Computed example of a mutant assay.
Amino acid sequence: MDLSALREEYTRDGLSREDLNPNPTHQFTKWFEQAQEMQIAEPNAMSVATVSPEGQPSLRTVLLKYYDDDGFVFFTNYTSNKAKHIAHNPKVALMFLWLGLERQVIIRGEAEKIGKAETMKYFLSRPHGSQLGAWCSHQSSVITGRKILELKLDEMKRKFKQGEVPVPSFWGGYRVKPEQIEFWQGRPSRLHDRFCYSRNENQAWDIERLAP
């Protein structure tokens, strides 16, 4: 199938140096709130890129659960492939794609596990079904069919019928501490606007325009 003629011309908006907040977290908040106002589906969905010990890159989509100046937090099974990759090489990349706004945000940094208390606080805020679901899957392992997951869920419903669902020991959060944050705005003729915040030796942020 030839897709060479399939293209969109990005004409919605531009991005200049004067538009940018000196703090990339505040700039991210501005764009994230605009994505919410546009009712973009799952605006907190982000791709997480990791590298295996063999050097093979992997990519998957997870949900950002909260963020601040210290980093961007997501949750996962600590036996998953992504967790194994992070244990070997904590350098990761995140990407948010908001096509309705013709925008991307790309974050590069290091991932580290968050504390147990922080994990518990979030876990207790999850719907009951999501709490049970965390117990049901050894993420990334091979299974013979969906029936295994359904039987495991029934087992967990019986096991935790009388009280709160505890946090699994193999489940928790990662905080990605950014070293670079790039804001990408689509423009006509593929001459997109790109600005990259990079953390310098004083832990302040330098901002540079990048060629599209």
Rank of each mutant, 00 (worst) to 15 (best):
Glu8Cys: 01
Gln56Asn: 12
His85Glu: 15
Glu110Thr: 14
Lys113Thr: 02
His128Asn: 01
Gly129Ala: 13
Leu20Glu: 05
Glu18Pro: 05
Thr79Pro: 04
Arg175His: 08
Phe160Arg: 08
Gly186Pro: 00
Glu54Tyr: 03
Lys157Asn: 12
Ala5Gln: 15
Gly55Met: 08
Gln56Ile: 13
Ser198Ala: 14
Ser130His: 07
Ala35Thr: 06
Ser169Asn: 15
Arg199Pro: 01
Glu33Ser: 09
Leu6His: 03
His128Ser: 04
Gln27Asn: 02
Met1His: 12
Lys152Ile: 01
Val165Phe: 06
Phe32His: 03
Asp206Tyr: 06
Leu153Tyr: 15
Leu210Thr: 00
Asp68Ala: 01
Gln180Thr: 15
Arg17Cys: 04
Pro178Phe: 04
Gln180Cys: 08
Leu151Phe: 11
Lys157Leu: 13
Glu42Asn: 13
Gly129Cys: 02
Gln39Ile: 06
His192Met: 09
His26Ser: 14
Tyr197Val: 05
Leu149Cys: 02
His85Pro: 00
Ala211Thr: 12
Asp206Trp: 05
Phe170Ser: 12
Tyr197Asn: 05
Ile114Arg: 00
Gly109Ser: 09
Ser169Lys: 14
Tyr174Phe: 15
Phe170Arg: 11
Arg126Glu: 02
Lys30Val: 06
Leu64Glu: 03
Leu59Tyr: 09
Ala87Phe: 03
Gln139Met: 10
Met95Thr: 10
Ala134Val: 07
Gly172Met: 11
Lys152Ala: 12
Asn200Asp: 14
Glu201Asn: 13
Ser4Asn: 14
Trp184Leu: 07
His85Ala: 05
Gly115Glu: 11
Gly14Ala: 12
Asp154Thr: 11
Glu110Gln: 13
Gln39His: 13
Arg7Cys: 06
Ala211Gly: 11
Trp171His: 01
Leu20His: 01
Gly100Tyr: 00
Leu210Asn: 07
Pro90Glu: 04
Met46Glu: 04
Ser16Arg: 12
Asp193Met: 01
Arg12Asp: 04
Gly163Ile: 05
Arg190Asp: 05
Asp68Arg: 11
Trp98Leu: 00
Leu124Pro: 02
Asn89Ala: 08
Pro166Leu: 10
Ala45Pro: 03
Ile207Asn: 01
Gly173Phe: 06
Gln39Thr: 09
Asn77Lys: 03
Ala204Tyr: 08
Met95Glu: 07
Ala45Phe: 03
Gly173Gln: 00
Ala93Cys: 10
Leu20Phe: 05
Tyr78Ser: 08
Gln34Asp: 14
Arg7Trp: 10
Ser16Asp: 07
Ser58Phe: 02
Phe75Ala: 01
Ser198Thr: 14
Gly145Val: 03
Ser130Arg: 09
Arg17Ile: 10
Gly14Asn: 14
Asn77Ala: 04
Pro53Phe: 08
Glu33Leu: 14
Ile181Gln: 06
Ile107Asn: 07
Ile106Ser: 11
Ile40Lys: 00
Gln56Asp: 09
Val176Thr: 00
Lys84Ala: 13
Trp205Arg: 13
Arg209Trp: 00
Phe74Val: 12
Leu59Ile: 13
Ile40Asp: 03
Phe123Thr: 04
Asp206Phe: 09
Glu9Asp: 15
Leu64Gly: 09
Ala83Cys: 05
Gln162Val: 10
Arg17Lys: 11
Pro53Trp: 05
Asn21Tyr: 00
Asp206Met: 13
Arg158Asp: 07
Ala45Asn: 01
Lys91Met: 06
Tyr78Thr: 07
